[in-house]
Amino acid sequence: MRIKIDRFVVAIIVVIAIAYFFPQWGVASSPVPLDLISAIGIALIFFFYGLKLSPQKLKAGLGNFKLHLLVQACTFLIFPLLVLLFRPLLQNETHEILWLSFFFLAALPSTVSSSVVMVSIAKGNIPAAIFNASISGILGIIITPLWMGLFIDDMQSDFDFTQIYTKLVVQILLPVILGMLLQRFLGDFVQKHSKKLTLFDKSIILLIIYKSFAESFSDGLFASVSWLDLLLIWGGVLSLFAVVFWLTGSIAKWLHFSIEDQITAQFCGTKKSLVHGTVFSKIIFTGMPGLGLVLLPLMLFHASQIMIISAVASRFARRVTEQEVL
């Protein structure tokens, strides 16, 4: 049996390698405005999604309360509770920081752009994905600090999330609404060029991955971690992802979800946002030593979730295509 290698997964690995050898293009001092490019790219992604959606389809997607509850429960309840089970095993300060880093990962909201992109590739429920990914970012602003406040005594609570709200509205909600308003005029154009738009979506994801890893390599995030430590942490990250992915799929089947809703539940309910994680870490862990170690599981999870979900998404997409042919 010949194993087909997903080209998008290969592209991700290549981008991470480029970020390691050439991180200077992705740091804050880079003359290349990657933040601006990625921000515009994300806005365009959601504008195109808005063009694909009719108000009737979006209304139908928003009314699926069982799906929404499952996604948010996996994101903010099942993830943290699984990591919380291992807290009694802590023996020293190093274990405490490592456990806290995994708990921080588990308490974060889901991704926005990549979740919807992957659901789209897999032919899942896009309206529900947009709703869940967007609302997750808003809920995370409240829930993530509350979870972390249970274990960080000196957590600061007087911070301003205006920038996050502004980013959410400008880059996601407004483009989707604009696309929906223009759907009757440009809907056929989007359908005609769907393959090119999918390539555009993936390119923006690769750009975001490059910048994230370039900044980490440039800051020496992995310098103090041995290869064995890295493998053990990565193993823990993969195990956490696999358990939640299996649980989400099992619950979705038990609730008799359609294949489209199952895809959305598993793809949105098992993702974690690197963007939110980076912002939150600078606020919640201010003055705390070992911030690099706190961020390490999140970085590994970020890379793993995209590689795994992209491969799964391609498999789902091929199955749908084969069924259409039959």
Rank of each mutant, 00 (worst) to 15 (best):
F245R: 06
F245H: 05
F245C: 07
F245T: 03
F245W: 06
W246G: 03
W246D: 00
W246F: 14
L247F: 05
T248A: 12
T248S: 14
T248C: 09
G249S: 06
G249R: 04
G249L: 00
G249W: 01
S250W: 10
S250K: 07
S250T: 11
S250N: 06
I251K: 00
I251E: 00
I251Q: 00
I251Y: 00
A252K: 01
A252N: 03
A252Y: 01
A252W: 02
A252L: 04
A252M: 02
A252I: 02
K253P: 09
K253M: 11
K253R: 15
K253L: 12
W254T: 12
W254K: 14
W254G: 13
W254I: 05
W254C: 12
W254V: 07
L255R: 08
H256K: 13
H256M: 04
H256A: 09
F257P: 03
F257T: 01
F257H: 01
S258D: 13
S258M: 07
S258Q: 09
E260P: 09
E260R: 11
E260V: 09
E260N: 10
E260W: 05
D261S: 03
D261Y: 00
Q262M: 07
Q262I: 02
I263Q: 02
T264F: 08
T264Q: 09
A265I: 07
A265C: 07
A265P: 07
Q266D: 11
Q266F: 04
F267V: 15
F267P: 07
C268R: 06
C268V: 07
C268G: 01
C268M: 04
C268Y: 03
C268I: 02
G269Y: 03
G269S: 14
G269M: 04
T270N: 13
T270W: 02
T270A: 15
T270C: 15
T270V: 14
K271Q: 15
K271L: 14
K272I: 01
K272Q: 04
K272N: 03
S273T: 07
S273V: 01
L274G: 05
L274Y: 06
L274E: 05
V275N: 04
H276L: 09
H276W: 01
G277R: 05
G277E: 08
G277F: 09
G277W: 10
T278L: 15
T278E: 13
T278Q: 15
V279P: 05
F280E: 09
F280K: 06
F280P: 03
S281W: 02
S281A: 14
S281Q: 08
S281Y: 06
K282Q: 09
K282T: 06
K282N: 03
I283W: 02
I283N: 07
I283K: 11
I284E: 06
I284A: 12
F285R: 08
F285W: 05
F285Y: 10
F285I: 07
T286W: 12
G287W: 13
G287A: 13
G287H: 13
G287K: 13
G287V: 13
G287P: 14
M288T: 14
M288K: 15
P289L: 08
P289D: 11
P289Q: 08
P289V: 08
G290M: 11
G290Q: 10
G290D: 10
G290N: 10
L291M: 08
G292S: 14
G292C: 07
G292D: 14
L293Y: 05
L293P: 01
V294D: 01
V294H: 01
V294P: 02
V294S: 01
V294M: 03
L295M: 15
L295V: 12
L296S: 12
